[in-house]
Amino acid sequence: MSDLKFTEEHEWVRVEGDVAVCGISDYAQDQLGDVVYVELPAVGSKVVKLTEIAVVESVKAASDIYAPVSGEVIAVNETLTEQPNVVNADPTGEGWFFQIQLSDPAELDDLMDEDAYRTYVEELS
């Protein structure tokens, strides 16, 4: 089992110290189809959990990505701007979107672990 945690909105979080690396799940990229465009938040912006901070688009769908946790955006994955296909190829690795410096680590407790998320997705389809 991986160290990833998931939201009900299909974002994932990997905690590295007091930083949360975030992206979208394999299920989400599969539902979207070929990702063609990613709009990332500004580094330095303060974000609140469950607010829209990024956009991911395929040819026929545009999805808002919510901040899985609150804090400050300290890095974004610029690679995705030029190579949005990385989101499809490696959604939970090279296809990360942004990193958030956690302001309230307790928020992580609200997220699902991988097993719970798998069950959740199975119930959706």
Partner: peptide, 14 residues
Amino acid sequence: LTLSTREQHIRREK
């Protein structure tokens, strides 16, 4: 037709 995600039929109120 391309870059349709800008448009109302996908983006709706956005």
